[in-house]
Design a protein around this nucleic acid. Structure first.
Lengths: 330, 330
DNA sequence: CTGTTAGCGCGTTCAT
DNA sequence: ATGAACGCGCTAACAG
């Protein structure tokens, strides 16, 4: 049905070997035959079959990307970076939406293996303990982005969450806040949940502020949960002048909850986000936030997947916009 | 290197044909040999080579998706729908970020052809005239989502933009607004640009309101352009009580511009978005918007790509939230 | 029920 | 500089 290397060989009167050489621009043919073959290729509209190539050559130039939620701004940025790097190296990426709990991860892993991808980028939030084994059972290179495995065995590209959370919280403290609420992603999440909470706690301690457990709440990084939990905090009459949110979406949720109750941001409540996605820019007022360089992390992750190399710690930063203000006195 | 069907055949003492039958659960073997083979497969960790399968069977179970900007909420929702449908049919998708102007489209098209994808979903905003030919040069089924080609030749899944814009604008008019600004995506864009503008104009005319060209501005659907253009409108002292934006992002940009200048939404200015992405929900105040059912459109598009079928018009809706208010008198 | 064989389209020796 | 032939891993007849 499709037209093959044989067709162009026949049409030009050379052997398929020669055509192959020309297509892969190796050496071993005269300029004359080259011209001829190139012409025929254009004429016929010949397009090399990547499956056949992969079958013999062992190189599919394809990698798989596992994400928990493709539609988020967070995933989007990551994907954008990964895709950019892949494109520049001539790779394609197949994206796999694993579901918020990673429920489709196993299925995808076997599919990716069957398709003989050259590697896997794992960007699903959590990294279940048993996944490590499954993954090296695959015999494929893997690197995690914005997350990490329990063991040191799999390279990661991520920010130092604990330090980032420490810095974010410290920023709040330095502006005079002493009652700081915390909106997290769940302590059972050992990568984005626990470390950020620990960083928050560290900052409190470093500045001699006693922790108040009544000020900490957990959600799932999504907008709704941020809105809900902040709403509860507010409704309970908890006293706090600042809020550390573990994602921009949650922070925006907090903005909503505050507004619904008539508390003004940043005048009465300072809010700090996390990620620096477009959500932070678009928020009203624009969110001060802890940045993760998602695009760059995606690129880096792809590169270390293909070229090999160890874990990388991307550097975070505090992006100051309008939701955090200096407090006068205490 | 990898373990093949031969290995499991050898290990179980049957022929590769039998193994193949079992793997593809066809008929023609005893329950006993089945057990034996299955065991060996698990033991060895055999994983069928999809490339080889594709080479002989002509079915790669893969489709390509072309998008102009993966990191947007818009693309995310679409992708989510596409991915969901694909996953449920056992397909994988390779995503191609074509760039905002579609500059990498050609490269990707040839790659996708080489990889023998079974079809292509085109969701890049614009559909250049010459693309039609290139595409059927590929000999691959294509369907466009949220956009369409100039000719009727390629099936699309999209909303009726002109009618949707008409309805949105009418909604504004019915609330008493008569000076309505328009924020578009450029008249040169025949799919999301012109039709929406025409719908806006139609509504004006239908209600006997003269058009005011000083109230119409164009951007690129992104946040920044919405903010910029609205800012200009406001700075010029243009008189309008409502604004129709051609995307949620632009509408949010308008919110920012308004807020910076102290004009209150919706008290002094009503704003209507388009798309109903998460940006609309997260906006403060939440955006009243014209919904495109992006997720469902993605699913539909995938299905018509695989199963065949003609163009589909998805139905839009007005989602009322808080940025549009009734105007009392004139 | 099971095995043999012929390709699928291509890269790659090894000849010439 | 060029060609013949083998094999990548698998499915699909065709034999038995």
């Amino acid at each position: 049905m499709s037209i093959t290397i044989k067709d162009v060989a026949r049409k030009t009167g050379v052997s398929i070997a020669t055509v192959s050489r020309i297509v892969n621009n190796q050496s071993g043919y005269s300029e004359q035959t080259r011209k001829k073959v190139i012409m025929a290729i254009e004429d016929l509209g010949y397009s090399p079959n990547a499956l056949a190539r992969g079958l013999v050559g062992q190189a599919t130039r394809t990698v798989g990307v596992l994400l928990p939620n493709v539609s988020s701004l967070f995933a989007g940025k990551l994907l954008e970076g990964i895709e950019a790097a892949a494109q520049s190296e001539g790779y394609s990426i197949v994206v796999c939406n694993t579901g918020s709990e990673g429920e489709r991860t196993d299925d995808y892993l076997t599919i990716l293996k069957q398709k003989r991808v050259e590697g896997i980028l794992y960007a699903s939030g959590d990294f279940p303990k048993d996944l490590g084994e499954k993954i090296d059972g695959l015999g494929l290179p893997v690197v995690t982005v914005a997350t990490r495995s329990h063991e040191e065995t799999i390279p990661y590209v991520k920010v130092d969450d604990q330090t980032a959370a420490f810095d974010g919280t410290s920023c709040l403290i330095e502006k005079g806040h002493r009652s700081i609420a915390f909106l997290g992603g769940g302590l059972s999440d050992p990568v984005a949940g626990k470390p950020r909470f620990d960083g928050y706690l560290d900052a409190l301690k470093a500045h001699g502020i006693p922790r108040q457990d009544s000020l900490v709440r957990f959600g799932d990084f999504r907008f709704e949960s941020g809105k809900r939990e902040t709403g509860r905090l507010l409704d309970e009459g908890a006293a706090f002048t600042a809020l550390f949110a573990s994602s921009d979406e949650m922070a925006v949720g907090a903005l909503h909850a505050a507004r619904e109750r008539g508390v003004r941001v940043p005048e009465e409540l300072s809010v700090l986000g996390y990620d620096n996605t477009l959500a932070a820019e678009m928020a009203l007022p624009p969110l001060t936030t802890v940045e993760q360089p998602l695009h760059a992390m995606g690129e880096q992750a792809f590169r270390t997947l293909i070229n090999g190399g160890g874990s990388l710690t991307a550097k975070h930063a505090i992006i100051e916009r309008q939701t955090v203000r200096q407090i006068e006195e205490e």
